[in-house]
């Protein structure tokens, strides 16, 4: 299970990690090694077995749509790296 350089770059881009050249090389090696060891999963016979996403016997948890107090704008904006008035300041998405 050897990850190619292109695959590492592609995953790094999907995850938006801004990987450096050194990281691309090191992560490529480490992930290849990890995945190679995890190939034993393919030995398990899972025919007819359903996947488990979570372990508790709950389904479709809903709650009543009630108005409850929420945090005010100043509390929410207190941690904002960039703000303007009562808004988060962001960079242009469309040029």
């Amino acid at each position: 299970m050897k990850l190619s350089r292109e695959e590492v770059l592609h995953i790094g881009l999907l995850a938006r990690l801004g990987l450096t050249e050194a990281e691309v090389e090191r992560l490529g090696e480490q992930l290849s090694n990890i995945l190679e060891n995890f190939e034993i999963l393919q030995q398990v016979d899972t025919s007819g077995i359903l996947p488990t996403a979570q372990s508790i016997p709950l389904q479709n948890v809903t709650k009543d749509d009630e108005v409850t107090p929420s945090l005010d704008q100043s509390q929410i904006l207190a941690n904002a790296p960039r703000k303007e008035g009562n808004f988060f300041r962001v960079r242009a998405v469309l040029e």
Binding site: L41, Q42, V44, T46, I49, L50, P51, T52, A53
Partner: peptide
């Protein structure tokens, strides 16, 4: 696959 192994 991992989630199926989780079931087992």
């Amino acid at each position: 696959k991992a989630q199926k192994v989780r079931t087992l």
